[in-house]
Simulated assay, not measured.
Amino acid sequence: MSIQTNAADIVTVSVLGQVANPSLSGLPAEPYRLDADGRAFLWPTFGGIVYNVTVGDSAFGWSGDCIHPSVSIAHPDANKNRGLNVFACVGNGALIVSGAAKGARGVVTGKSGRFSDQVIIHFDGETRRKIAVDDRILVKSEGVGLCVPACPEVHFKSLSPTLFDALPKRIEDDVLMMGVCATIPPHLVGAGAGLTSEGGSLHIQSTDRAELAKLGLDGLRLGDVVAIEDTDSRYNHGYLRGAMGIGIIGQTDGPRAGYGPGMTVVMTAPAGQLGAYDAPGTNIADILGLKA
Rank of each mutant, 00 (worst) to 15 (best):
G103I: 11
P28F: 13
F46C: 02
A182W: 08
L95R: 10
H75P: 01
I67Y: 10
G289M: 10
A213C: 01
M177W: 00
V119N: 05
S14W: 03
T45D: 15
A150I: 00
K80M: 13
N236L: 09
E126K: 06
D165W: 01
V225L: 10
G199M: 05
S23I: 10
A227C: 03
N52E: 15
A182F: 08
L222W: 11
L188K: 11
D165F: 02
R33E: 14
A132G: 03
L16Y: 10
R82F: 06
V19W: 13
Y32D: 03
C89K: 01
K214F: 02
A213Q: 15
L42F: 14
G93I: 05
T268L: 02
L215G: 03
H68W: 05
F123W: 10
V11N: 13
G219I: 04
D224C: 02
V50F: 03
V226T: 14
L24A: 08
L84I: 08
Y235W: 07
V97Y: 06
I137H: 08
G113W: 07
P152A: 07
V119F: 07
N81C: 11
V13H: 11
F41R: 06
S70W: 12
T12K: 15
D117I: 01
G272W: 08
D174L: 04
Q251L: 14
D37K: 07
T252P: 03
V11Y: 12
A279S: 15
G190N: 10
R39C: 01
